[in-house]
Simulated scan of single mutants.
Amino acid sequence: MTAGPLEGFAAHLSGELGRSPHTVRGYLADLTSLLEHLDACGHGPADLDVPLIRAWLSHARSAGASRSTIARRVAAVRALTRYLHREGVLATDPGPRLATPRQQRSLPTVLDEEQAASALEGLAPTTPVELRRHAVVELLYATGIRVAELCALDLADLDRARNTVRVLGKGDKERTVPVGAPALDAVDAWTTRGRPEFVSPTPTGALLLGARGGRLGVRQAREDVHAHLRAAGVDSAPHGLRHTAATHLLNGGADLRSVQEFLGHSSPRSTQIYTHVSVERLRTAYQQAHPRA
């Protein structure tokens, strides 16, 4: 077994397809396992066909691989077989004949309104770090934006006259999201009393700053959320606040299309899971309250 096919494939993924380093590393790890399986069976990359690939996937399933892991492996194999077919290594591409396992969609964890109020109103931030944490949590809940979108915000993205924020989402798609007064108050407290303590000699226009004065990183933003919520006695995560915002909007009467635009989903199918959350809560309330439930 040689590393040649994967070296060329790695360059193809990053250079031609523009895949992220994280995706490239994941694909290569999966496909190294595939090539080792082929080698153990006395085969090479030119022998790749559906039965061999299915045998490899079946072995992974028997070893306890989750559906998401199998789906990722199928995606990696499809990309590889398409590349090998283009390069003339494979006469035909077996990738399209591979079925992707359907993902189990679990209901997202959301805070109820009392928990959300406790997380947002139960603490009185005073230090620069506490002010940043408060602003991070308020903005995530108020806008439903992703944590990466939050970290990418600049001071200029906030429009206080209109109570909105300009967000650059997936695929560089821009959207404008409304922001409530409490979140804007938290941001004002951060920018006036917290942010100046982080500004470096080479200032940036980023709204949220890290310890060295640069733009706040996603990892630190996640830690800010966990630290703030733990202090408030609430258990959630950044994406949990996004789920919470969407669910509370639907429970309050917002239509699905509006919530789709609010979240920056390209398809309504991505938003429909939140209707399941609301239905599940209705079912729970029914079972608790209806005499013939």
Rank of each mutant, 00 (worst) to 15 (best):
M1W: 11
M1S: 14
M1A: 14
G4F: 11
E7T: 13
G8S: 04
G8F: 09
F9G: 00
A11T: 13
E16R: 09
L17P: 00
P21I: 07
H22C: 01
R25G: 11
R25V: 11
D30C: 00
L31D: 04
T32K: 12
L35I: 00
E36S: 13
E36P: 02
H37V: 06
A40H: 10
A40R: 14
C41E: 15
C41G: 14
A46D: 13
A46V: 10
D49M: 01
L52I: 03
I53F: 04
A55M: 11
L57F: 00
G64H: 01
A65S: 15
A65D: 09
R67N: 11
I70Q: 08
I70Y: 01
A71T: 08
V74Y: 05
A75F: 01
A75Y: 04
T81P: 00
H85C: 13
H85V: 10
L90E: 01
L90G: 00
L90A: 05
A91L: 14
P96L: 09
P101M: 05
R105L: 12
S106P: 00
Q115R: 09
L120I: 04
E121W: 03
T127R: 09
V129F: 11
L131R: 03
R132I: 02
R132C: 06
H134C: 15
E138M: 02
L140D: 03
I145R: 01
D154I: 03
L155S: 12
A156R: 13
A156Y: 02
A161E: 14
R162M: 14
R166I: 04
K170M: 05
G171H: 10
D172T: 10
D172W: 09
D172L: 12
K173V: 01
E174N: 03
R175Y: 07
R175H: 04
T176F: 11
T176R: 12
V177M: 07
V177W: 06
A181F: 08
A181G: 12
P182W: 07
A183C: 06
L184N: 00
L184A: 02
D188F: 08
A189Q: 10
T191D: 05
R193A: 15
F198Y: 14
V199P: 07
T202S: 14
L207K: 06
L208V: 05
L208R: 07
L209R: 03
G213C: 07
G214S: 12
G214T: 11
R215V: 08
V218H: 11
R219Q: 13
Q220R: 14
H226M: 13
L229S: 01
L229V: 11
G233S: 04
R242V: 03
R242L: 09
H243R: 01
H243G: 06
T244I: 03
A246D: 08
A246S: 06
N251S: 13
L263Y: 03
S266H: 11
P268W: 04
R269Y: 10
Q272L: 09
Y274V: 00
H276G: 08
V279T: 14
E280L: 09
E280K: 12
R281L: 10
R283Y: 08
T284I: 12
A285M: 11
P291I: 03
